[in-house]
Structures are given as structure tokens and as C-alpha cells.
Write a protein that binds this DNA or RNA. Structure first.
Lengths: 252, 252
DNA sequence: CGCGGTGTTGAGACCTGTCAAGACGTGTGG
DNA sequence: CCACACGTCTTGACAGGTCTCAACACCGCG
């Protein structure tokens, strides 16, 4: 992980997505926003496929994703890799490290990424001074957990086609929240083998499943851009309900 | 859900497991323990198979499990039920409802259970007065999330045999923490179909997988009691590492 | 020009699900 | 005491989804 010189205010600009994400769920005052901005000490550029945090490593800082996609991953003994959760810009990627002190899985970069670093003592200070933010960040970890539950559900009970449909629905919605999707699609940089690592499928089967979604006229994947052709049917096929993303605005 | 008259101090006695669980991870002072005890206003008895909290229901209180097993569950459109997480005595079952305000899944009773009720305003008061407890409960939600990630992993990448082995390992360890297991086993009240709902398997396949574990001399399941015959091989088969339960004692 | 990563296709094997039937134990009512 | 129903556990046969292996096309890049 290589440190890059901070130009102008790259952190401030990159935090855009983070505040969109928070404000989709609750109010964040100007004072709170200002306080959050002081938590980050530097940004880093991470190349694709890099391991950002290795399993078991002692932690003293948290990472907020400014740009690119990260993922939590864990390997089978035989070497197969499962991606447990995909993180998008604005996600406080390992805030739970703040209480856990180490991770039980790897944090890897799916694409080239820009991250911001928040030392634990500053986070500690932030949530001590702003109990509302403590609750709000607790909320975001709970939303992450809800997403995780839905993945468990999909892996255990849905066949490949539904699993993939649901995955696209979730990404689409989460990207819309942070303004990184258009009306009908989004940039999708994963390769088919990587998609298989997300869905617990072999690369071959990913290919066939993708073709099936295409031929049913539900999605289109060209040139690293995913087009949602028929969102209604896609949601139906994936048994997708956006409940679990808790996108309703409430005092927390 | 039927309310039972409180006899003597049923809450206090039942909280035993809760404090064991907390103190496996961090120190809890006498003052903190006392404060926690004041949070609960009543206990309830829940019959087996009851729905304790229904999906989408507005919440104003959290539930701590005193005795019995609860589970989070979600149904397929076709009616198949997946159990997303199993909760054991001492678990603060829907503490995340405190920030989420509703659940995106059902909370059901796997066995007859006793629960204690904690209104949100009291929880709010507790964590405002004891920031250390706020972090500690945040920690427990993070541990729940870690367990959830491991379930996702198991469902997507491990075959039935390993999945079941791992499930037994996890339960054994979690039950030992709260002193509800012996050296070589524990009471296991689930039927084979219920076990299938936990593991994402059909009842028929559960039966065959269980026989395979038995014939390999790894576990024994008689009379609702699970005996771990060969724990080392069981852990090996399930690729189980206890890391993710964060059972090391640290200042949080 | 060759090469590695990516996407695609076919064939066969394997794991797991479904359906159906029967064994066993337990509680209930006659 | 027996007959019966019911839930649970067990077994067999077959079907279907997904994996593995192998081969090939395509592309960007050194």
C-alpha cells in the first residue's frame, strides 16, 4: 500500500459519497459533518487485487473507501476464494475493526481504489463528542450485517440465476444512493471469475447464468457496463426486496 | 407472546449467561453490571415455534435471550425457510433493532424460551451513561456480523458435510462460553428438518450427512444430545477456526 | 508475434433435491 | 389394552443443478 501526497483536498471531495450514504438514513448536521471531516489523516491509492488488510493483522486505524470497489474475502483450504461482502465508495470499510482489533478475513481491492485513513483515537474522540454519530455508525454496521444476512440467504436458498439477479439489484440500489449509477445501469468492473467469487459459483456457470439473464432480456453486460433492461422482472426473479438496505430516513 | 408474572428475580438469574458472554471479551465493572441489570423491565415465556418478532414490525424494545434457542429466519417465495443465525442464552437478540427501528426478517423460537425485555429509552440511557458499554455492545453486534460472514462462507463454499461439522463446532464453543456445554457435548434440541433449515439442506440430505459424520466417528446424536466424539477431526473437516468468535479478552 | 487474461462452449461426474414409502416412538381416544 | 394418528427418522430411486476438465476464440499488450 503506497502513500500518495495529498493534492488540494482529495479527502473532502471523496467524502461526498459517504455523506450521501449517511444522509439517506438520518440527518447529519453541519457541525457533525465538519467533525467527521477532521477524522481522516491521509489518503492512499491501492492497486487492483492488492490485499489492503490481511486476516489477523492488528489494527489501529479504520479505512473509508473514497473511490473504487473493495471486498472482504476468505479462502477455502482448497484455495477457492469467497467474497463475503462488496464495499462501494462511501463505505466505512472496517469500522468494526475499531472494536474487534483485528479482522477474521482479508480486505482486498477489486479495482484500483482510493481510501482515507482514520486513526482509532480520532474515531474514539468523534463518537465520544457526538453520541448521535456513534448511533449512526452503529446503524451502518447494522446495515452491513443485514446485507450479510441476505447474502447468507441467497447462497443457501437461491439458485444461480436468482442469486445473480439479486446481486445486481443490490449493487444498483447501493450505487444509486451514492450517485454512481445512471437510470438504467452502472459501471461493473468485475470479471466473470470475480463475479463467481461473489456468488459462490464457478466461472463457467457464471458465464452460462449471465447468458440466461441476457437472453431473458433482464440485463446486458457490455464493455464493463451493466444495463438493467427489465428491473421489475430482475427484482422478481431475485426475490429482491430493498427493505434490508434501510433506505428510509428516520431519526436514529 | 404471553407475559409471565416475575417470580423472585428471574431476570437477574437469567442474565448469568449474558455476563459470561461479555466478560469473555472485556472487563465489565460491578457498576456497569448493576446498570445493565436495571435495563430490563420484565420477562416473557415463549412457546416453541412462536414468532417472537415479525418482519417489518415497528420496534420499541430489545430482547435478551435468557433461556432456550431463538433464530432469525427468512422464507423463500416457494416457502422454504432459511435460518440465518441461531441465538443462544445471553445473546442480545435484536439489539440492532435499536438503530434499525424494524427488522427485515422474522425472529422465531426454536425451543421454548425465556426472554427479557429492554425498552429503547433505557438502552439509550445506559449507553449514554456508560460509553464503554456502548462500545462493548457495538462489539457484540460486530461479532454477530462476523458469525454471519462465516455462515455466508460456509453456505457458498463448503459441501454439506463440512457445513454441518462447522455448525456443531460453532455451537459447541458458543455454548461453552455461557457454561451450557459439557466437555464433550451439549443438548441439541433441533429436529433434522430444522437442522436443514440452518444449513440450507433438505431434511433427507441432513439425515445422510449426519449418518456420515456418525460413521466417521466424529459426532453422535442421541436423545437430543450431541456428543463431540472427535473434535480435532470435526474442526478439520469443517475448516473451523475459532478466530471469528473473538474470544480473546481485550480492552475494547 | 506470442502470451496471459478473459469469455465461451461441450461433455461427463458429482452433489444435493424431490418424491415416495416405510419404520419407529409417542400420545390420544375408544 | 388396543387402534390410530402424527411427527420424526430412515431408505431407495431418480432428476436436476452445478462443478470440473478441456478446448477454443478473442483481445490487449509487451
Amino acid at each position: 500500500v503506497e502513500v500518495m501526497a495529498s493534492v488540494r483536498d482529495p479527502i473532502g471531495a471523496g467524502l461526498e459519497a459517504h455523506f450521501r450514504k449517511l444522509r439517506a438514513r438520518d440527518e447529519v448536521s453541519a457541525a457533525e459533518e465538519k467533525a467527521i471531516r477532521t477524522v481522516f489523516v491521509e489518503t492512499r491509492e491501492v492497486p487492483a487485487h492488492a490485499v489492503v488488510v490481511r486476516r489477523g493483522q492488528e489494527l489501529s486505524q479504520s479505512i473509508l473507501l473514497l473511490d473504487g470497489w473493495l471486498a472482504r474475502a476468505q479462502n477455502t483450504r482448497k484455495g477457492a476464494r469467497q467474497i463475503l461482502e462488496v464495499h462501494l465508495p462511501g463505505d466505512f470499510v472496517d469500522l468494526h475493526g475499531f472494536t474487534l482489533k483485528r479482522l477474521d478475513h482479508d480486505l482486498i481491492a477489486l479495482t484500483p481504489a482510493t481510501i482515507a485513513i482514520a486513526p482509532y483515537d480520532r474515531i474514539r474522540q468523534l463518537i465520544d463528542n457526538y453520541p448521535h454519530l456513534a448511533r449512526l455508525y452503529w446503524l451502518t454496521t447494522n446495515i452491513d450485517a443485514a446485507i450479510q444476512r441476505q447474502w447468507t440467504f441467497a447462497m443457501s436458498r437461491l439458485p444461480a440465476l436468482a442469486r445473480m439477479a439479486r446481486f445486481f439489484c443490490e449493487l444498483f440500489l447501493r450505487l444509486q444512493v451514492i450517485d454512481r449509477a445512471t437510470n438504467n445501469g452502472f459501471n461493473f468492473c468485475l470479471t466473470q471469475p470475480q463475479l463467481g467469487e461473489c456468488l459462490g459459483l464457478s466461472a463457467v456457470h457464471v458465464n452460462r447464468t449471465l447468458q440466461s439473464l441476457r437472453s431473458r432480456g433482464l440485463v446486458q453486460l457490455d464493455n464493463r457496463y451493466l444495463t438493467i433492461v427489465d428491473g421489475v422482472q430482475l427484482r422478481d426473479l431475485g426475490e429482491f426486496s430493498p427493505d434490508y438496505l434501510y433506505l428510509d430516513w428516520k431519526a436514529r
